[in-house]
Design a protein around this nucleic acid. Structure first.
Length: 723
DNA sequence: TAATCAGCTTTTTTT
DNA sequence: AAGCTGATTA
């Protein structure tokens, strides 16, 4: 091991070495983009363990993303082997969750508490709006959700918010208070709650706090500029007596202010952790000189920086290419053209990153890539475990683990349809309110008392029996069997199988994939001490599986938002939609602070590129279905002209959105219908094709008949003829 | 109760 | 352009 460590040290530059081998104490590493900060962090841990005889047991290493945590774990295992065991390495949320699981009683949680994501949280708030009679138009649920999360990120409970002037805040606090109660009763914990609860756990338990403070003598934090107040407090509580505290960050890459991140925490660290040593990593190993100059020039427009200038020993490289598209389709065509050229010259698709400000931009780019036959994958958008059908299946499982979970109950009691509508649910809610019990118990009581009978009662009884069966299976069966059972026995799979079309097909595949995921989980994850496999799996789905499917990234062009590009690098990078109002986003224009954050986001994007960088914008763009004139982003203007080469548009301007009639492919070549085509049906008479979905035998068409109204027909069976 | 439809809002970024 | 909500209809 020791030989390998000194070998490793050899490949570090002086600044990196200084950071890795800095004497114990408080250390702040200001690490520019591409300066090898993860490497420094990993080496510092290795150095602590092998040179300073620190026990791995005493090391706490915190990151923001699961990906970063996984990478760190992997590298540590590689460098230290079994010596790495006993460390706590994970995300803030993951580690907080771990603590809450270990000490659920002291944290005043139910043993089987469940973690909910933002969507679930919003659902809960929506329901509270109804029960509390809050006007959805005046107080948007999303805003209130933001309010609650912001307060939690600041470490503020509703109880601490008693006297407030504004009427809006009054309502927000009211909802917050009820939301806390609701979560408490249902055993639900949201993301922000994980952190806050874990902080309170330590704060209110001298014994636990003493234990952890004595244990974690060496604390390391990645991406420190992204910490919010509660994370900072959590850390300082744990680390006040630590022998070494190493934080690594880059104020220029702070892009999560909207989520409560405080760049000031870097300064605060210097202030509050005594005698902090500061090391700057400014040598960049990633990008060409030109790209770095552009990045430096751009970021220099921000005030209040800690100050850092990247440099490289490498080549100047090619100029940055700026392209003005006629519209967003032309922009996409240009991107495709340049990708093609790259591939023709022997470059690989996986070396290309196409970045944009907002997810909505991906569609046009995707269409162009599909037409060009270039394989791509999109990061972001909806993640696997966030898909509706997956959440349905998981809601069954959540209910099995924790019958108090009313949200899950409501989600699936009538999915697939069992004849249980709003009125029935209202009845159950009344019972639950009167008897102070969960909806699940209310349902059982209602059945016992015959309050809900007949067809609806039968449906509800079937549901209750189903869940009880699954509860029994949980005790004996394996995790994957249980997941399988919940999908099959609930009728969820059959429900989608009955439906035709691409969407339904996808859902079926996703549900099958969920069973695979459970099987993998079973095989790969060791059984946690006090957690059932199912509970562990559910925690995993909401907490750890958040990262994108990165499986087949090998041969694909990568499309993603600038936010999710942080930490990655590509030889070839496109940043699309460099337009005023889009990037910087118009929501950020009002206050200078968020404009600076946008600029940092741009800085992050630019510094993703190794050798070639394209900045593209469109002069016209469709926004909400309307063509809008667009102006070039100020960020392009902030890059010195001598670093830029503008590429002129080709002469042939293709006018936008020429509706090529979509031909429905069926059977032999030449057959098929167009949208808008007049057709005739033996029974329904004449009509117009207005939509279609699916392919081949599964093709269905939506026909608006003159007399019989509109109907979906399976093309393979309906005897449709063109008029 | 379930399915369909018209009309309305939406698009910032996510652990 | 697309997805969602609430109203209407079967």
């Amino acid at each position: 091991m020791e030989t390998s460590l000194s070998q490793h040290l050899d490949i570090l530059n002086p600044a990196q070495q200084a950071a890795v081998t800095a004497p114990l104490g408080n250390l702040l590493v200001l690490a520019g983009a591409g300066s090898g900060k993860t490497r420094v962090l990993v080496h510092r841990i290795a150095w602590l363990i092998s040179e300073m005889s620190v026990s791995a047991y005493g090391v706490l290493a915190v990151t923001f993303t699961n990906k970063a945590a996984g990478e760190m774990r992997g590298r540590l295992r590689h460098m230290l082997g079994s010596e790495a065991e006993g460390m706590w390495v994970g995300t803030f949320h993951g580690l907080a969750h771990k603590m809450l699981r270990l000490h659920w009683q002291e944290a005043h949680l139910l043993q089987n508490f469940q973690v909910i994501d933002g969507d679930d949280q919003l659902q809960l708030i929506r329901r509270l709006f109804k029960t509390l009679n809050v006007n959805e138009d005046r107080f948007e649920p999303k805003k209130i959700q933001g309010y609650i999360n912001r307060k939690k990120d600041e470490g503020v409970r509703s109880a601490a918010l008693s006297h407030v002037e504004s009427a809006y805040d009054q309502v927000a606090i009211e909802v917050y208070r009820h939301y806390e109660k609701l979560c408490e009763g249902s055993g639900l914990v949201d993301f922000a709650e994980l952190l806050l609860r874990s902080y309170e756990l330590l704060k209110n338990n001298v014994e636990l706090l003493t234990y952890y403070q004595a244990r974690f003598l060496h604390v390391l934090v990645d991406e420190f500029q992204d910490t919010n107040t509660i994370q900072y407090l959590w850390l300082s509580l744990l680390a006040v007596h630590a022998k070494s505290v190493t934080v690594v960050g880059d104020d220029d890459q702070s892009i999560y202010g909207w989520r409560g991140a405080k760049i000031e925490n870097i300064r605060r660290f210097e202030r509050e952790f005594s005698e902090t040593q500061v090391v700057r990593l400014e040598q960049n190993y990633r990008s060409t000189g030109t790209i770095l100059s552009a990045a430096n020039a751009l970021i220099s427009h921000n005030g209040s920086r800690l100050g850092k200038t990247l440099w490289t020993a490498g080549e100047k490289g090619d100029p940055i290419i700026v392209y003005a598209g006629f519209n967003e389709e032309d922009e996409a065509l240009f991107v495709v053209r340049e990708i093609r050229a790259w591939l023709m010259e022997g470059g690989r698709a996986s070396e290309i990153g196409v970045l944009y400000r907002s997810n909505a931009q991906s569609r046009v780019l995707e269409e162009a890539l599909v037409r060009a036959g270039i394989p791509y994958s999109v990061y972001g958008g909806l993640r696997f475990f966030e898909r509706a059908e997956i959440k349905d299946a998981l809601a069954y499982l959540r209910l099995v683990v924790n019958s108090k979970d009313n949200t899950s109950f409501e989600r699936v009691v009538n999915v697939p349809p069992r004849g249980i509508g709003d009125r029935t649910i209202e009845k159950l809610q009344e019972i639950a309110a009167e008897e102070q019990c969960s909806l699940w118990e209310a349902a059982k009581k209602a059945l016992e008392r015959g309050i809900i009978a007949n067809r609806i009662g039968a449906g509800l009884a079937a549901f209750v029996a189903l869940i009880e069966n699954l509860m029994a299976e949980m005790v004996e069966g394996s995790l994957s069997k249980l997941v399988q059972a919940s999908i099959y026995e609930s009728g969820l799979l059959a429900f989608f199988k009955d439906q035709k079309g691409e969407k339904a097909q996808n859902r079926i595949e996703n549900l099958e994939e969920l069973i695979n995921a459970a099987t993998d989980f079973e095989n790969e994850y060791p059984v946690e001490n006090n957690l059932s496999p199912l509970a562990a799996f559910l925690a995993y789905t909401s907490l750890e599986a958040g990262d994108r499917e990165n499986g087949q990234a090998e041969s694909h062009v990568q499309l993603m938002t600038l936010h999710s590009a942080k930490g990655l690098e590509f030889p070839l990078v496109f940043i699309c939609g460099m337009e005023d109002g889009l990037f910087p986003h118009h929501f950020s224009r009002e206050n200078p602070q968020s404009l600076e954050e946008e600029r940092r986001l741009c800085y992050v994007g630019v510094t993703r590129a190794r050798t070639k960088l394209y900045l593209t914008h469109a002069e016209k763009r469709r926004v909400f279905g309307r063509d809008e004139e667009r102006r070039i982003s100020r960020f392009i203007r902030e890059i010195p002209e001598n670093l830029i080469k503008e590429i002129n548009r080709r002469v042939s301007i293709r006018y936008p959105h020429v509706q090529t009639p979509s031909v429905i492919p069926i059977g032999e070549e030449g057959e098929g219908f167009c949208l808008g085509q007049r057709v005739t049906h033996p029974k329904f008479g004449e009509g117009t094709v207005i939509d279609h979905e699916g392919m081949g035998e599964r093709t269905r068409v939506h026909v608006k008949f003159d007399v019989f109204g509109s109907k979906w027909l399976a093309l393979a069976y309906a005897k449709l003829e063109a008029v």
